[in-house]
């Protein structure tokens, strides 16, 4: 009887062995996801596991983070290898600096801009356009659109009466 039990134990052990040694792909995927989620930089990484080979993809902030994602998944017990398909985020576009017209070209541009508004006068100093005179509320928008398109530093319209 003891021998039979021992035999059963050996057989059971033999069958149990592979499932103990190799976790299922789904289990590995869950473990890999947990490893990625523990690092806030890696939460955008997606992982798929097939035959214990993990494939990671998605956009991360930089190349170092790509490597970190790969290491995190590789460290999961049971993952044989990692195919790294992540990509670094493109660098942010540089913000164009503010362009301010020089006073002489600004003066010319402002003269053109107020030409159709004979009740308005303008002066230019240090990039600041100062508007004076009076204008109807309807014309104000058109005037301001034209004046602000001349790339001034500032438009001072406190002396402009809106009727």
């Amino acid at each position: 009887m003891k021998r039979i039990l021992a035999l059963i134990a050996i057989v059971a052990f033999t069958f149990a062995l592979p499932s103990c040694k190799g976790k299922s792909d789904a289990d590995l995927k869950t473990a890999a996801e947990a490893a990625l989620q523990s690092n806030p930089d890696l939460t955008t990484v997606m992982v798929d596991v097939k035959d214990a080979v993990a494939t990671i993809s998605g956009e991360v902030k930089d190349p170092a983070t790509q490597s970190a994602a790969e290491s995190a998944v590789k460290s999961v017990e049971g993952i044989k290898s990692v195919e790294n398909l992540t990509s670094p985020a493109p660098p942010p576009l540089p913000v164009a600096p503010v362009t301010i017209s020089a006073d002489d070209s600004l003066t010319t541009a402002v003269t053109d801009a107020i030409k159709d508004h004979p009740t308005v006068s303008a002066s230019v100093a240090g990039g600041i356009v100062t508007l004076t005179g009076e204008i109807s509320k309807d014309d104000l928008k058109v005037l301001m659109q034209k004046v602000q398109a001349t790339k001034p530093k500032k438009v001072d319209s406190k002396g402009l009466t809106v009727k």
Binding site: Q148, K153, V162
Partner: peptide, 13 residues
């Protein structure tokens, strides 16, 4: 109102 503050240059054309 009336673009009076002089704190914005809007140049979107």
């Amino acid at each position: 109102p009336n673009y009076a503050s002089g704190d914005l240059i809007l140049n979107v054309n």
